[in-house]
Design a protein around this nucleic acid. Structure first.
Lengths: 244, 244
DNA sequence: CCAAAAGTGTTGTGCCTACACCCATGG
DNA sequence: CCATGGGTGTAGGCACAACACTTTTGG
């Protein structure tokens, strides 16, 4: 039982705090590649309960570390990955989440660049693997619920904030960006309208390079995301209007 | 020190969990009245630290109670209020939040009807008080930060979800709704455009009643929020377009 | 009859949607 | 020369913004 670190009172009589709740963090890391589509990074559990099930990377928060630090540490330890984008998603505190004890988990939402994606996919680490969001395995604990919430957030967010760029390489083809949106939204979008709207935001700049045409067809120009411009626009408050 | 409820391992060697983190919930409760504008419910702390400072209602989560239950229990105990609307806001987990120990707090965002607002304001309970969001006192812990985040959420949410109704009486004048928006947004809006847009959503119905004109001027018709219609629309997915 | 608040319509502009053909390369 | 994917412009509809006068009541 936990020590009484201090006393509290709602009534007039003070009483000890003897809370038996453990705190963890979990990360839903999204990655993207042309071939595998939008994917989530999962690890295979090596201990009970749910031994050998797939689960979100995460773990217990240390006493003197912030929640963000805990997420990044666990991601590093369990998957070796470093994320581009990290934000808090939701805190899951249901009583029966963990069969062993009361565990409350602060879930985070993370995005990694395509290069990180392929990097991990190349190694044959059996411990961490990418799963397409349409073909998820059965998950440990309530991690399925957490992922669903994260996917919902991703789908919503991509229509009003330019986070698509966090999932692509630094340089990308416009068709890549379009494909990412199509896969996330689940319906086709008009190529010309999409490009016009995206360019009108002023966040995407066309480079002078042309991709070496690997496949058939006309080689595409390369584009990059103008992060500096994005920060300028964010402070002056920018309307994304209706992005899709 | 907390018992080791179970073992964990990231590395191959299992080790005990000896986490010393306490978990609390805090509630940012918004209320509204014509006279006092948009306000937050605060309580005066009776114990150290921050004795006699104003703080958010909240407290420690019990071992076998969900986070939502904890919030509602604490609100009932500390303020006697019952909320119309409750959603999770954010989890604050900075290391130095509480001078005594590591305390992580899950903050909630709540709205109460105008009637509850006036009810509490009428009693002379010195423990809980409404404060206009423009005139907040110095707050205990990081509660100022929490309130700022909640205000941000409220301002954003009111433009894309019909939560304004949760703050008004069951029957209200259109001018009340308009005033609420004006006070929250901080700028004037066109009365005619506002009414047209709001009515076009089909969520507000005009009643056959007219308010007894207490002040000078033409008496207004009463309106009410059609909650049934709202639920219908929510499932079929409704565009709010640009509400303001 | 005057002050105060409620109620109501129209017009212009600009964004969004829908839509189809040519271009550059590899094989 | 053909298959494949990249690149581009325009016309119509509709939602949004801008705008001011009339009506009803109390004093």
């Amino acid at each position: 039982m936990k020590n009484a670190y201090f006393y509290t009172c709602n009534s007039s009589m003070a009483h000890k705090i003897t809370q038996q709740i453990l705190l963890t963090v979990d990360a839903v890391v999204f990655g993207y590649s042309q071939g595998q589509g939008v994917s989530v990074l999962l690890i295979k559990r090596k201990i009970k309960p749910f031994k050998d099930s797939w689960a979100l990377p995460g773990g217990f928060v240390h006493d003197k570390e912030s929640l963000e630090d805990a997420v990044m540490r666990e991601l590093q330890e369990e998957t070796g990955i470093s994320v581009q984008y990290l934000e808090q998603l939701y805190t899951f505190g249901g009583v029966g989440r963990d069969p062993r004890s009361r565990v409350v988990s602060v879930a985070y939402f993370a995005l990694v660049k395509s290069s990180e994606f392929t990097l991990l996919a190349a190694t044959d680490a059996a411990e961490a693997e990418w799963f397409n969001i349409e073909e998820l395995p059965v998950l440990a604990f309530d991690h399925g619920v957490i992922i669903n919430k994260a996917i919902e957030r991703l789908r919503a967010k991509i229509t009003y904030e330019p986070i698509g760029f966090e999932l692509l390489d630094r340089k990308f083809l416009f068709s890549d960006l379009e494909q990412l949106y199509v896969k996330l939204l689940g319906y086709d979008i008009d190529r010309r309208n999409f490009k016009r709207k995206m360019m009108s935001l002023g966040l995407v700049q066309q480079l002078d390079e042309v991709v070496a045409s690997s496949t058939a067809g006309r080689p595409g120009k390369l584009y990059s995301f103008d992060k500096k411009k994005y920060k300028e626009l964010k402070v002056s408050g920018f309307d994304l209007l209706k992005l899709i």
